[in-house]
Write a protein that binds this DNA or RNA. Structure first.
Lengths: 344, 344
DNA sequence: GTGAAAGCGCTAACAG
DNA sequence: CTGTTAGCGCTTTCAC
């Protein structure tokens, strides 16, 4: 069509999305052959494959994965649900998981659920309606309705960041109560008798700080403050929480914060008020965010191998998806460890 | 099947995913009616709708959006591509965008491209193959191949975080060079003549710091250091960069960092070496992360309305998708502003 | 207000 | 190695 006006494109391109039949026609083969060139190249003769590939390039063909998924009943996509990505904690897991899955040919559909439980079921419906091949979901506290929907989707499920007694399917996480107990042990070994906590109000954070408090209690310690702030954690919330406790911090105190953000805030506020850290106030955070190692003073925190968790979760999912062997139990306790730095 | 063993479920549920025909049969209507109850309830009599809804609940029916999408040619899904979510900058935009889109019935498929350009085209192919109804993509620097693929997908596209001269379609962002110039003006007004920059090596960060440096040069300032670190920015990189510049910081110096993380690192390191801030070293960051306001000293930074950007982007996309009026030009300069705090 | 027929673009299964 | 046939589960279109 040389009279169609000054089109910027030298080659002619169809306005409508190119489909497999267009490629097939141009290459002079059947649509099925085109499909094979894309999905199982080894089952096509090199000569034919070459022809087809030229046609694909020439037309700029992008296969419709929606149609393919409907036909093959595999979407080559997995859904992931986390409360937020603002938190380095989840960001690491997701990044690693995404990379590993993409390498295996799966795309990750990431959804943010927020901390409210208000419309999690609606979110799940929207997600599961797209027929993901697997589901990654943060936390182990779900409504009965949510659990039922997930179960009935009959896909592999990995719950991350939590290890509960009644897993839906597979789990990669750790026991938050163990963390609290471990931190308690750590402080007790240093001779602390007075303690405080600052915690976000999400279930996992509370588990960590409350089990810490209980362990301290059992050991005869005395609580001088248990502050709870709204999730997600912020530095400011940590500062304010510490400011509120300041009057009670008359003696050497051990503080456990449910997040490094809170810990950093607490330390910042303490120093502003000339409360010696770690002389008067010992602080342990959680998460090993970059902040904990790179700020001055670097502060003690609990490190959880988030990247490793993402890797393991991807491994679990892929093993189930590629169906090697029987339906294996997937269960992994992500190791955690206290990293002692300058604030204890 | 009463002899099938002790099933935990009281009600009988099909092992195979239930489909629209199952619901239709149970409700005694045609599949099409079920479809209408779900998508256009007002075109169904209340009585019929009630019957159908009971059947849906009873069977736990979750509509297959893949099939629906293939048929209707609308996936009710939009794809979003950002380099990383570890950065509060992008996290904010994405969070807002996702919320706004979900409210309108669209799910957001979020993908992380990383900072390397290695396989962005492959990523785009995987994304566009799922036939998203729209595309949100960070940055305006794309390979010709990528641009072509995007163009040929014939969907609304919003480039965020950048405003370039040759937009693919719509844009929501700001001119990074303007930011640099503005910061230069700010420092010049305070009588600075010596300056330095610390920048991540991604294109946008470099634009900000280089235009700052040029403006300072033009005003007769002298550069005592231009440090570049690998993206993404970290606090540690900021500390190291500053440490490297320390020998040259013999007089009052103005430092512009391409990210608040770098700025915080620089300030931390400067204080460690007893370099007075802001006496000897004035620092301005970028991004207005919580850290900039909540650390001590709170530091001067450039605030960009990320949340607003996400909102505007969603508005652009939705307006195009719902097709109100003609194909409008979408172009929005996100406002930015220097927030002066204790480090300048 | 409801239903029947046709087909979205692709791939599984089977032939050749 | 390649092609043909028959759907995947839903919605569009048109008829009633």
């Amino acid at each position: 069509m040389p009279t169609d006006g000054p089109g910027p494109k030298p080659t002619e391109r169809p306005r409508t999305p190119v489909k497999i039949t267009d490629v097939a026609t141009l290459a002079g083969v059947a649509p099925m052959t085109v499909s094979r060139v894309i999905n199982t190249p080894d089952r096509v003769s090199p000569a034919t494959a070459a022809k087809v590939r030229i046609a694909i390039d020439q037309l700029g063909y992008v296969p419709n994965l929606i149609a393919g998924g409907l036909s093959s009943r595999r979407s080559r996509m997995v859904a992931a649900v986390v409360p937020t990505i603002a938190h380095p904690m989840f960001a690491g897991v997701i990044q690693t998981f995404t990379d590993a899955m993409r390498l295996a040919g799966y795309e990750v559909m990431l959804s943010l659920s927020g901390y409210g439980e208000n419309d999690k079921e609606a979110l799940l419906r929207a997600l599961l309606g797209r027929r993901p091949d697997a589901l990654l979901i943060a936390g182990a506290a779900h409504t009965p309705g949510a659990i039922q929907m997930i179960t009935e989707s009959h896909i592999p499920v990995v719950e991350i960041w939590d290890v509960s007694s009644r897993p839906i399917d597979m789990q990669v996480g750790f026991d938050h109560e163990e963390v609290g107990q471990e931190v308690a042990r750590f402080f007790l070994a240093k001779g602390h008798t007075r303690f405080a906590t600052i915690s976000a109000d999400d279930p996992r954070a509370l588990q960590r700080t409350q089990s810490f408090a209980q362990a301290m209690h059992r050991a005869g310690g005395i609580v001088i403050g248990e502050s709870t702030v709204k999730a997600p954690s912020t530095i400011m919330a940590g500062r304010q929480a510490l400011a509120g406790m300041l009057p009670n911090m008359t003696e050497r105190t051990a503080l456990f914060c449910s997040s490094d953000l809170l810990a950093f805030g607490a330390i910042t506020e303490a120093r502003k008020h000339c409360l010696a850290v770690p002389g008067r106030l010992s602080v342990c955070g959680f998460g090993n965010f970059e902040l904990s190692a790179a700020s001055e003073p670097a502060f003690t925190t609990v490190n959880v191998e988030g990247a490793e968790a993402g890797q393991i979760a991807a491994g679990f999912v892929l093993q189930r998806l590629t169906g090697n062997g029987p339906r294996q139990e997937g269960h992994w306790h992500v190791p955690f460890r206290i990293l002692e730095r300058a604030t204890t």
